[in-house]
């Protein structure tokens, strides 16, 4: 019960944080170089037209005024309008956010258990050849740029071997997306009963997920390895070994539960980074996620989408932090609500 109260308090505290974030977002985007009106209509237009466009875009009001208007709209669910795509931002988000989340979720579902298992096995077999292989894996995982890796994967598996479809986004070029229920193509295609398209949606995800899993599992393996190594030499593990419990139980349950807090913290970090939009992956695979959305809007000073994406990622970050923090109570009974 106390934990629920804690979670509730944290959620309430999110509001001031968000307002603070919004202020920063808003004023920072205002400070961006470039003339929003000009990028919209081009440079070779007479000043009166620009002034008119500015007025239409509401850019001639004072900045604080614009802010208040903006927040007012937010409460109505109006994230503004992207003049670049021509849609309301909320519509765009409805497509792009699930694209990023889908990629993130599948990556995490694979990378987390993979990282924990590899890290645990390496710590439990310290000094062995297996341990050394894992270390090499981690070195590459941390060192190889995801951009380069993605290109290599595309080159090898698509171009040379033809095993996966071309990197044209979430589906083949000629496909029309399934009716929007969750926004997750792997689910929506099944809901629509279209198993062939389901297959294509999965196929398009293989390479990006592979690349992401490779680079995100490294830190998880590393944290797991280091905390598990500590745990395995601790006194209580020695006592458990002395009492004749099986090695599996000792490593997989007794030691691992103690190691979870640093691991979960690292996982939270990874999740936050992924949700921020793995822009480079999205570019290589033409993935229509929020990362690309934000960057493309930034390049043309289309401010509404930019603000919306930053806002969304802030909310998601705070939520992930909350989940991670609440999990601490579950993992370590010594931690009590203050």
């Amino acid at each position: 019960m106390k934990v629920l109260g804690y979670a509730g308090r944290r959620l309430i505290w999110m509001l001031p944080t968000l307002i603070g974030a919004l202020i920063v977002i808003f004023f920072l985007t205002q400070a961006l170089p470039g003339n929003a009106a000009m990028s919209r209509v081009g440079q070779f237009v007479n000043p009166e037209t620009i002034a008119q466009v500015k007025h239409n875009m509401g850019l001639d009001k004072t900045v604080p005024e614009q802010f208040v208007i903006y927040v007012g709209h937010l409460f109505q669910g109006d994230f503004g309008h992207s003049w670049k795509t021509g849609n309301d931002v909320i519509i765009d988000l409805g497509d792009r956010l699930p694209a990023t989340i889908e990629l993130t979720l599948y990556t995490l579902i694979i990378a987390i258990p993979l990282g924990i298992v590899l890290g645990t096995l390496a710590a439990a077999t310290k000094g062995s050849w297996f341990d050394r292989i894992i270390h090499t894996y981690v070195t590459f995982s941390l060192g190889i740029p995801v951009f380069w890796l993605s290109l290599m994967l595309v080159y090898i598996f698509f171009f040379l071997l033809g095993l996966v479809p071309s990197p044209t986004g979430r589906l083949d070029i000629l496909d029309t997306p399934p009716p929007h229920i969750t926004g997750f193509y792997t689910l929506d295609t099944l809901f629509a009963g279209d198993t062939e398209m389901f297959g294509r949606a999965v196929a398009h995800m293989i390479l990006p997920v592979l690349a992401l899993v490779f680079v995100t599992s490294g830190p998880i393996v590393r944290v797991t390895y280091s905390t598990m190594s500590n745990q395995l030499t601790s006194d209580h593990i020695r006592a458990a070994t002395a009492s004749g419990l099986s090695r599996w139980r000792i490593v997989g349950r007794y030691a691992l539960k103690n190691a979870m807090i640093p691991i979960v913290t690292a996982v939270g970090l990874t999740a936050r980074l992924l949700l921020g939009g793995a822009v480079l992956i999205e570019i290589v695979f033409s993935w229509p996620g929020i990362g690309r959305y934000a960057v493309e809007s930034l390049l043309v000073a289309d401010l509404a989408p930019l603000q919306a994406v930053v806002l969304i990622t802030t909310i998601l970050t705070l939520l992930i932090n909350l989940v991670v923090d609440v999990s601490y109570f579950w993992f370590d009974p010594r931690i009590k609500v203050a």
Partner: peptide, 21 residues
Amino acid sequence: LRGGSVAMIFQDPLRHLNPVF
């Protein structure tokens, strides 16, 4: 054998019990 016919207890018992169970 461990914990069966031959058992062991240690110094500083609070450090030798698993804190999360």
